[in-house]
Computed example of a mutant assay.
Amino acid sequence: MNSRRDFLQKLSLGIGAATLTDLTPGIAAPVTSNVPADKQLRVALMGLGGYADIVARGMKECKTARLVGIVTGTPSKIPVWKQKYGIEDKNVYNYENLHEIKNNPDIDLVYVITPNSLHHKHVLQVAAAGKHVVCEKPVADNAKQAREMIAACEKANVKFYIGYRLHFEPHTKELVRMREAGEFGKIMHVNNYAGFKIGDPTQWRLKKSLAGGGAMMDVGVYSTNGARYCTGEEPIWVTAQESKTDPVKFKDVDETVTFQLGFPSGIIANCGCTYNFNHVEMLRLMGEKGWAEMNPAFGYGPIRGTTHKAAIDQPDVNHQAYQMDGIADAILNGKPDPNVTGEEGLKDMLVIDAVYESLRKNGAKVFIKK
């Protein structure tokens, strides 16, 4: 496993699995209604890298969302995508003419899947064009940018969501349901880790100007978000440490970061992320009455979990299809927003900002700014 795509792409076994129950607070439910084709949410993907192709393939399973357009700066990709996904010429854009999408009634939403440090610029552009937005995580380079993105979408009266696919994933959903139902008792401790050994040293993820940071900005989002949905609380302080075994390869970005999150109730979460080694994708929750472990916890599937009671018995699904159907259902049918809005992305960025501040201060405790 030598790339982020390898790390995450354990594609779901049971695409089109059984319908789940109603919305669990904090984790969105999948769509259960059938929406006529002429009322589907029509989506354009912006940035046609490896993950965009995974989203596009996943959307073939959607009931309420449909891929109709693309935005790319690489002309050679256009004929391939047109043929593979049936994209019409009128729904093809580049970064220079993106503003013209405002006049296209056949596109409702743009899913931004460009490098991290371009998210801020691109979300602002899409909002200005009056289209709803999904943005891949991390939402931005920092919390300040995230706030600006939220404000721009509110001003334009468009919806703004972040690609937290695990908030729609049944095993993760069940873990949160059990925690909220008190089946673990008072939560005492959380331990989670996400990472992989990164490959190509010339890729954009190792360039701070495009990635915003290293492992912390990439897979570290899983650690922060996982700690938050395992506790149901927002952390109030952080301490963090970095180790770097290859100062040449990782001259621009962090390689391995371990960090601790302190929560209002006294819970401590030990978290970590790395670009230096494989086989780290786990989450463990300890409570007064019981425990849960997810391993694998963060990839594209299958997710696996067990608790003090039994294995978490939930269907394997296509994460990207469930995510896009959930978002489409909220937009088309006036359902409550799933817990993947820009505000959720901001909460993770507040933690990540504090982690980097702690690293700059040699591991000192940093209180998270709200």
Rank of each mutant, 00 (worst) to 15 (best):
I15G: 03
A17L: 01
A18P: 00
D22N: 09
L23F: 07
I27L: 02
S33H: 02
L41S: 04
R42N: 12
L45N: 05
Y51W: 10
A52F: 03
D53E: 12
V55I: 04
T64W: 01
V68L: 13
T74S: 12
W81H: 06
K102W: 01
Y111G: 05
T114Y: 01
S117F: 13
H119V: 03
A128M: 02
G130R: 06
K131D: 10
D141H: 08
N142H: 10
R147V: 02
E154D: 05
K155V: 08
V158A: 00
I162E: 06
R165L: 11
R165N: 10
V176P: 08
R177Y: 10
G182I: 12
G182D: 12
K186F: 02
M188N: 14
V190Y: 13
A211H: 07
V219C: 11
T224C: 15
V238I: 14
E242N: 14
D246Q: 06
V257E: 13
P264R: 10
G266T: 07
G266P: 09
N270Q: 15
T274I: 08
N278Q: 08
M282Q: 07
G287W: 09
K289M: 00
E293V: 10
E293I: 15
G301L: 07
P302H: 02
T306N: 02
H308C: 11
I312F: 06
Y322E: 04
M324W: 05
A328W: 10
A330Q: 06
D337V: 05
T341V: 11
G345V: 14
D348N: 15
A354W: 03
S358P: 12
R360W: 10
I368T: 00
K369H: 07
K369I: 11
K370L: 12
